[in-house]
Design a binder for these strands. Structure first.
Lengths: 224, 224
DNA sequence: GGTACAGTTCGATGACCAGCGAAGCATGAA
DNA sequence: TTCATGCTTCGCTGGTCATCGAACTGTACC
């Protein structure tokens, strides 16, 4: 039996569902009504789409009281979506203006579970020039110096030793068209930013906002 | 403007088109009628689908006499398709039997422009254990020893120095569920196999066939 | 020239499916 | 209990689009 990419494609290939999925690329779990608003459809139709996405194994649900929280099923799904996003920007907006029109989104946003946008790209480049990451085209890995650096920052290297997910991984930024940092370290950096209260999250979008002081601390910390 | 992954998805999300695309994952350019046969539809409908795919920038055409040869537009498209293939096998055939039923396909096949299947995975693992590749999860890179080895084999390292495509890249095998080797080196290895006449290509599928002698030479060459 | 074949255009048909209104169920709050 | 809210089920409607038959253009080969 051939793997059925057609059903997968048609699941993504509907406007409303595509909106929902991109909204969920923010990494947060969203309720059915939130997703309905996002896709600009009524609750009834949203239900239909959501059940399709769940039975299609692209989403998972968690019931909490009278709310239902939906989430992307795993990183593989997120990866596929991100690659589709990248490809589609390349195709649809070839050389005019790249990426999101909202400047805040363009500056800093969440890409599933890590940081993207201008600042994400700056971070990536900075880490490379400092010799903490080694970039070899699409493939990127952490240098020994990088390991020591992130350990010192509080990243628990051993906790991720057995994980199937790569420690670090470059992710093509669909607004900037260059790499930013994904993988376990990318995730950790973002989490850490929230915990250290350097950034806050906009409620209604993937954008993240740096406080003035947060931005300074961030740049100092990663030598930007 | 948001990137439009919906149209991209719906392009892939049709059975006939999906068949055509997976057929083209073999890397060879195919004619319109060949693709029509592949998708089991008439020539007229094939034309419609193909024009859609071309205007959607997923395929490119080359006219040659009275034939039209279609091909995937670039690796990015191939990458998206491969990731979709992988995801869909994970989803649809969860734990029963992985991958293609055809044993020849399972043993050795072309994945766009490099070698996949059991033998592809063997090659990858062999290169890793010999210290020619360094595998760090999803990210893989060529070691210095590996550079020397491939240079000696006749791979022109300098020719790819400026290429945006990574020299080596792991690609998740959808039948074996482990990595095989993609990237420029993966491509070179496959080309070399054809040139050295160690393998021949089946006309109608992605499967490649090793001659007995070819298999021996291949294993000797890469220390398997 | 004529014949065969590759690919196209057009129009008609039919199926699928997103969308919503209306009504119903379930949970939590007053 | 009553009300509000979140989500669901049902049935209908309309639009979109894949499919094919029939007829057409263009290329190749004899």
């Amino acid at each position: 039996m051939q793997p059925d990419i057609a059903t997968l494609g048609s699941l993504i290939g509907d406007d409303s569902r595509a909106h929902m999925l991109t909204a969920l690329m923010g990494g947060k779990a969203l309720t059915a009504t939130e997703l309905a608003l996002e896709a600009d459809i009524t609750a009834q139709t949203a239900t239909r789409h959501l059940t399709q996405l769940v039975t299609g194994k692209l989403l998972t649900v968690r019931k909490q009281g009278r709310h239902k929280y939906f989430q992307l099923a795993n990183h593989q799904v997120a990866d596929v979506l991100e690659s589709l996003l990248t490809l589609s920007t390349q195709l649809t907006i070839p050389h005019i203006k790249t990426g999101p029109s909202d400047p805040a989104l363009r500056f800093a946003r969440v890409c599933y579970d890590h940081l993207a946008g201008e600042i994400g790209v700056q971070l990536y480049n900075g880490l490379v020039t400092q010799g903490l990451l080694l970039d070899q085209g699409d493939v990127t890995h952490l240098t020994d110096k990088g390991r020591r650096f992130f350990s010192k920052q509080g990243f628990d290297m051993d906790a991720y030793a057995g994980s199937k997910r790569p420690l670090c991984k470059s992710c093509l930024d669909w607004s900037e068209r260059t790499n930013h940092l994904a993988g376990s370290i990318g995730k950790w950096i973002l989490q850490d930013l929230f915990e250290q209260k350097m950034v806050t999250r906009r409620l209604d979008s993937r954008a993240v906002t740096f406080s003035d002081r947060g931005l300074m601390r961030f740049k100092a910390r990663y030598g930007l």
